[in-house]
Amino acid sequence: MDNLIARQELNTEQQLMINAEFEKRKKSKGIAYILWLFLGSLGGHRFYAGDIGLGIGMIIVWVLGWFIFFIPTIIWAIIDLFLIGKRIDQLNEQIEAEIINKVKMLKS
């Protein structure tokens, strides 16, 4: 919602600049879910979303899982299934806000 308010102050050319840059940089929920499906236990979807620390944490849990039948890894991956969409939405809002701020700085 804040991004919509911030965009109201901009002219059409600036809006087009924001849209073009956002289309290049935005993250896809579809790709995140595919990464979760194939590399979920290794945190592939976390690395895609820029959550490097959590991705490394998932790898560590996966390695430790060899000794406890992967139960923590499976639980974490299932929980992430429900969190991926919201995380990608937050990330895209953040990316859009950064682009809007850059365009506003160019305007000044």
Rank of each mutant, 00 (worst) to 15 (best):
V63M: 12
F22G: 07
A6H: 05
L37G: 08
I5C: 00
W76H: 11
I95S: 08
M58Q: 14
K104H: 04
Q8K: 10
R25M: 13
N101Q: 15
N101P: 01
S28W: 12
H45V: 03
H45D: 09
K104M: 14
A32M: 06
I84M: 03
K86N: 15
I68S: 03
V63E: 05
K104D: 07
R25G: 04
I75M: 10
A20V: 03
M17D: 06
I34A: 15
A20E: 11
L81C: 13
A49W: 00
I100F: 02
K107H: 09
L54N: 07
F67N: 05
W66I: 04
E96A: 05
L35I: 03
D89Q: 12
Y48D: 02
S28T: 13
Q8P: 01
F69W: 14
I59F: 11
R7W: 00
G43Y: 09
L81M: 13
R7H: 00
G57H: 05
D51A: 14
Q90C: 04
G30T: 15
E93T: 07
I88M: 05
L64D: 03
L81G: 11
L4G: 13
R87C: 06
K102H: 12
I31N: 03
I79F: 14
I84T: 10
E23P: 00
D80E: 15
I18Y: 03
N101D: 14
I59P: 01
M58R: 07
K107L: 07
S108D: 09
I68N: 07
Y48V: 02
V61D: 04
Q15Y: 02
G53I: 09
I99K: 05
V63P: 00
G85E: 09
F67C: 04
K26G: 08
V103N: 05
L91D: 06
S41C: 09
I79H: 10
L39F: 15
Q94E: 15
A32E: 02
I5R: 04
F70E: 07
Y48N: 05
V103H: 10
G40P: 01
I75Q: 11
K86F: 06
G43D: 05
F82Q: 06
R7I: 01
L4C: 00
F47E: 01
D2N: 13
K102G: 02
R46W: 02
P72I: 11
I99H: 06
A49R: 08
W36G: 09
F82H: 07
D2S: 08
V61A: 12
F69R: 02
F82G: 12
K24E: 10
M17Q: 14
G85R: 09
W76E: 10
G85C: 02
M17G: 01
G40M: 11
G65P: 03
W76L: 15
I75E: 12
M1L: 08
S28Q: 14
F38K: 03
K107D: 14
I84R: 06
L54Q: 10
K86C: 01
L39Q: 06
K107V: 07
N11A: 09
F82Y: 13
H45Q: 14
V63R: 00
S41Q: 11
Q14W: 04
R25C: 06
Q94N: 14
Y33P: 02
T73N: 12
D51S: 11
A77S: 15
I84C: 06
V61L: 12
E98T: 08
G55I: 08
W36H: 15
L37D: 05
N101K: 14
L16P: 00
D89H: 09
A49G: 13
I52K: 13
W76K: 12
V63C: 10
M105H: 10
L16W: 00
